[in-house]
């Protein structure tokens, strides 16, 4: 009997270890290394980072907060998709339903809205941080460029999402916003009709903004975010004073 129990234990342990190779809380340097490079989700990190990059007053966590907000937006956005219908007849009613009858509907909508507003703010602040700390200098030039496109995508996501409630605020903001695009020389009207799917903000515009908002722009965002994070590692982690030409003179820790 004892033999059987121990055999089962060994078997279960084997199964567990087939999933989690290291399989215990890291207590020493080896374990702390394995925690990162044996874990798919943690593997976007290096095993070790500089103390300097962890100083709260260096990054203020702005990039990370932006990324967290994006995750929150994906989560709440997908949840909202269960009730939202992108038609001129239904969209506004669904907003009212979310507010009044759907369980916790108002929470999801409010979180989505405030996270979106916050993301625009934090992405801009993150960009300012990178600029003021000179963190775009070689070898990080290209990651700055990726960051600029991520900022534009953030604007695009926020703008396309703005139309979806189909209220007066949405309708006129998008009427005015897309008219500004119409002033682009030569191809302005083409851009406008590409966005609106016609000449007015109507059903065609709503479905186009919806597809852009829930599939195309978030997809691009995820790809570029992947490149952005990967480049942080490949470019040697966060910018560090020791990379300066006159680093021998001192610099931070």
């Amino acid at each position: 009997m004892d033999l059987k129990i121990s055999a089962v234990k060994t078997y279960l342990n084997d199964v567990f270890r087939s999933i989690f190779r290291y399989g215990k809380m890291p207590r020493d340097a080896e374990g702390q290394s394995f925690a990162v490079f044996n874990n798919l989700f943690l593997h976007i990190h290096p095993v070790k980072v500089t103390r300097h990059s962890l100083k709260p007053t260096y990054t203020f966590g702005l990039g990370l907060i932006s990324a967290v907000l994006f995750l929150v937006l994906i989560f709440t956005g997908v949840w909202l998709m269960f009730y939202y219908i992108p038609t001129v007849d239904e969209a506004y009613n669904r907003m009212l339903d979310l507010r009044s009858s759907t369980n916790f509907g108002f929470v999801l909508r409010n979180v989505h809205k405030w996270a979106a507003e916050a993301m625009v703010v934090f992405v801009i602040l993150h960009m300012a941080r990178v600029f003021f700390t000179g963190a775009y200098k070689p070898p990080r030039e290209f990651n700055w460029v990726v960051g600029v496109f991520l900022l534009l995508l953030t604007f695009g996501l926020s703008f396309t999402g703005y139309l979806l409630p189909w209220d007066q605020l949405a309708f006129w903001a998008i009427t005015v916003g897309t008219s500004i695009a119409g002033y682009v020389p030569v191809m302005g009207e083409d851009i406008r009709s590409f966005l609106l799917g016609g000449d007015i903000v109507g059903q065609e515009a709503l479905i186009r903004f919806y597809v852009l908002h829930v599939v195309i722009l978030p997809g691009l965002m995820l790809v570029l975010l992947g490149v952005h994070f990967w480049r942080i590692r490949k470019d040697g982690g966060l910018a560090h004073p020791s990379e300066n030409e006159d680093a021998s003179a001192g610099g931070g820790e």
Partner: peptide
């Protein structure tokens, strides 16, 4: 961040005006 958003969501409603016209 999640906690702050939840608190904000409970106390401040996202704006919603009349239906588009």
């Amino acid at each position: 961040v999640s906690a702050l958003l939840l608190v904000a969501a409970f106390f401040i409603d996202a704006p919603l005006e009349a239906i588009a016209n």
